[in-house]
Every structure is written in C-alpha cells, then in structure tokens.
Design a protein around this nucleic acid. Structure first.
Lengths: 156, 156
DNA sequence: CGCGATTTGTTGCGATTGCAATTGTTGCAA
DNA sequence: TTGCAACAATTGCAATCGCAACAAATCGCG
C-alpha cells in the first residue's frame, strides 16, 4: 500500500541518524563503524578480523583499515592467533576501554532522547517490525548474491 | 527501555537496505543518491542545485558531482536560470525519463516485496513512528549545528 | 549609488568504503 | 608427501562524500 512512503521515511531517517551520530562521535575521533567495532571488542579473547567484518556488515578490507586506525589511536591491539598463523586477534587496550566508555555515554544519551518519544508498547512493535524486515532484506541480499556468484561460476 | 535495541536494529536494517538497493540499482548505472535525484526531477521547471542538496540531505558539492555524472550519462540537462545568473536549472532528458522508469520499476518491485510482510495497520503505525523520530532527530541535528556555528562565529 | 554580506555553484583535499588481486597459511585428498 | 582448494589479511584502485576555500552574482543597507 504505502510501501514507498515507509521506504522513503526509513531512508531519510537513516541519513539523519547517521548524520547525528557522526556529529556526536566526532568529538571522540570515531566514526560510526569504528565505534561499533569498539562496542564489540573486549580485553580478553579478542576477535578475528573476518568475524568482525561479518558482524559489522562490511568488507574484510574495510576491517583491516579500521583496525589500522584504531591501533594507531592506541585503542586496540593486534595479537597473533594461537591456533592459526593466518589469523589475528584484536583486543581493547586500557585506552580503548576509556574511549569507548566516553563515546558510549554520549551516544546512549542521544539515543535515549530520540527514542523517548516512543512508549514501551510502541517500542515493542517497532522492534518486532524491524526484525521481520531484517529477515526479509537479508534473504533478498543473499538471493541476489547467490544468483550473481552462480552466474559467474557457471557461465552456462 | 530498549532504546538501544531499536537503534541497533535500525542501523543494521539501514545497512541492509542500502546494500540491497545498490545491488538493484547497479544494473541501471545508478547509486541511491543518483536515483533519488532522478525521482525528484521532471522535464519542466527544473531544480536548482542548492534546492536539490537540501532535499537530498547532502552537500552542494555532492550535488555538483552528481549532476556532472547524470549529465555525462545524458539523463539530465543543465540550463541557466532565467532570473539569477548564479543558478542553474536541472531537468530530465528523454533518456532520463526512460532510465528513471526502468529503475523505478525494479526498486518499487523490491520495496513492495520487502514491506509486504507488514499489514496496513502495522504500516500505518510504522509510518507514524518514523515521522515522529524524524522530527526529533532533525531537531537534534539543528541544535548541534546551531551550537557549533554559533561557537565559531562568536568565539567568546 | 556603493560596498560589504550572502548566496550559488565549483574545486581541492582527505576520509571512507567496496571490489579485485595478491600473499601467506591451512586443510584435505590422492 | 604433495598438490590444490579454501581461508585470513592486506593492498591497489576507483567511487563516493563531507568540508573548506573560492569566484561570480545578487542583495541589502547606509
């Protein structure tokens, strides 16, 4: 019915949220992806770059450069994987913990203000709808990519 | 309450939708911004670049390069503004109309499939919530930018 | 009128990211 | 064991975009 209105609104809100986040995170010398990476990391086991790329929905090469940056900022550390010399483990440093704490406080304060206009029931409904949409769109992407990779591997 | 879950879901769905759109639009040699610009344009009056940038929520320089590209593809035409020699009017060419029609059919088909999992009542609720969020986030951005521009113009 | 402020569009520059190609490593099968 | 496919990470390259600086044109106020 009004699918297109949903879509346009969603798209516009995405742009606005990105922009707002960027303004908030700028003071911590982080962009959205870098911040999301810090949120995932901890000081113990560490993540492999490939796993980070899957979780962050970006390319492995992007994670390489993201880790380069966070390492140059002293926020994370690379260490070799004990069981596989191809892999590296990325862990938070003490400075990384501190930077993440500061940024997280600012972001969550902003998020709280934004979503405070929804009551609990609305939030519950929104979450349910977003989850269903996520499932559908993930399937759509998987289908397209399967079709294109099949086309390239089987040039019948 | 679960503000943060809303936020993460929204962010993830944004990435997925962007990615899916890009896969659909790629066959028409368009990215999301270029497609959205084509949607706004028509063959009559034409838009000024500055107005396009405000509507598309991007910088004027981005519109300059976007218009450069669409012009090189033969989809739009620049013409001088009758009343202001600083301005230019951008209008769709016949090829632009055709390309837009093809891309729009593909995108709207995809959007229809994605949002078909919501019923009318859910769609109504989603639109209402997204509109309220848009208002809040727009205000947040305006506030931050007002504060920063004031700080730079009045370095008290 | 005249001059400074504002507006429009452009360009230079840096940051970010996807994609393809490459290097080094691992695992599996002959 | 050896050879080959799969995998981890990196690099080169191009596309995209925001921001700041800029030139030309317009506006507005004395």
């Amino acid at each position: 019915m009004d699918d297109y209105q949903d879509y346009r609104l969603f798209q516009e809100l995405s742009l606005l949220l990105d922009h707002a986040d960027r303004l908030v995170l700028r003071q911590f010398r982080l962009n959205t992806l870098q911040y999301n990476a810090l949120l995932l990391l901890d000081t113990d086991e560490g993540w492999r770059l490939t796993d980070l790329s899957e979780r962050l929905l970006c390319e492995r090469s992007t994670v390489t450069r993201l880790v380069d940056y966070l390492e140059s900022e002293g926020l994370i550390a690379r260490s070799p994987d004990p069981g596989d010399r191809r892999s590296q483990r990325v862990t938070l440093t003490a400075a990384g913990v501190a930077r993440r704490r500061e940024a997280q406080a600012a972001i969550e304060e902003a998020i709280g203000r934004r979503f405070s206009i929804l009551n609990s029931e609305e939030e519950r409904q929104l979450i349910a709808m977003l989850k269903r949409l996520r499932t559908v769109v993930s399937a759509e992407i998987a289908e397209i990519e399967a079709a294109s990779s099949e086309a390239s591997s089987t040039p019948s």
